[in-house]
């Protein structure tokens, strides 16, 4: 397990999120507070509709909270009615996403799927390609650099997706069911990889999962029940 440094990468205080008003109001999150430090791998568990993905979306700057306070890697992104502008850039620079079904762009090969993030960030093409190659090698899929997603196995595709998530050296990695489409062996490999990345790159990994096989790979596990966060260390 990692030691806990002083300043958290993810800091949420009393975050609430509701959809609709009056009789149709649904409280997706209620008074959620959370701190995640560099090097930590955190698991978010809970039944469908409990608010896990909403929490991930708020941390990923995709969904605006209804109330509360949120800070990512030193940047306050939300303070009650105020929301930081240009969250797209912040997302690009600081957050890496890993999806359940890898979400690789089908019209780009492995190398391009990784370098597209760097391209969007304005990194010159040769440097972007070099970085993408390094990441693919690091994740042991360098030999598949020219393969399109349709020709990759589930494990290979997920590794390429992880490489894409890491392309910009993000401090925060958000993973939505990263092992759902993988068998036990590959799921364990992916989780060990995420742990390695968290430690080596001083990043925080927050993963939503239902996969019991990987529970022991988390530093801390939170249960989300009816929009509330329950710690289970």
């Amino acid at each position: 397990m990692t030691t806990t440094p002083q300043s958290p990468l993810i800091e949420l205080k009393h975050i609430s999120k509701h959809y609709g008003e009056g009789e149709t109001r649904v409280d997706a999150l209620r008074d959620v507070s959370l701190e995640v430090y560099p090097g930590q791998v955190i698991g978010l568990l809970g039944p469908s509709g409990s608010g896990k993905t909403t929490l991930l979306n708020i941390i990923g700057c995709i969904v605006e909270a209804s109330s509360g306070w949120a800070k990512l890697d030193g940047d306050v992104i939300y303070d009650n009615a105020w929301m930081k502008s240009d969250l797209r850039r912040l997302r690009l620079d600081k957050v890496g996403f890993i999806f359940q079904f890898h979400n690789l762009l089908p019209f780009l090969n492995s190398m391009e799927n990784v370098s597209v993030v760097l391209d969007l960030a304005g990194v010159p093409a040769d440097r972007a390609k070099q970085r993408a190659q390094e990441l693919l090698e690091y994740l042991e899929v360098g030999h598949r650099r020219d393969a399109y997603p349709a020709h990759l196995s589930g494990g290979e595709a997920q590794r390429v997706a992880i490489a894409r998530a890491l392309a910009n050296n993000p401090r925060i990695i958000l993973a939505d069911e990263p092992t759902a489409a993988l068998d036990s062996e590959r799921a364990l490999i992916v989780m060990k990889l995420l742990r390695k990345l968290a430690v080596e790159q001083d990043a925080a990994v927050l993963a939503v999962t239902h996969d019991e096989k990987i529970y022991d790979q988390f530093d801390r596990i939170f249960h989300v029940r009816d929009g509330q966060l329950v710690t289970e260390d």
Binding site: R91, N103, L120
Partner: peptide, 13 residues
């Protein structure tokens, strides 16, 4: 739709 959503999510303007 999914590819565009992914592009937006990873920070495409």
């Amino acid at each position: 739709i999914r590819e565009i959503a992914t592009l937006k999510l990873i920070g495409a303007p």
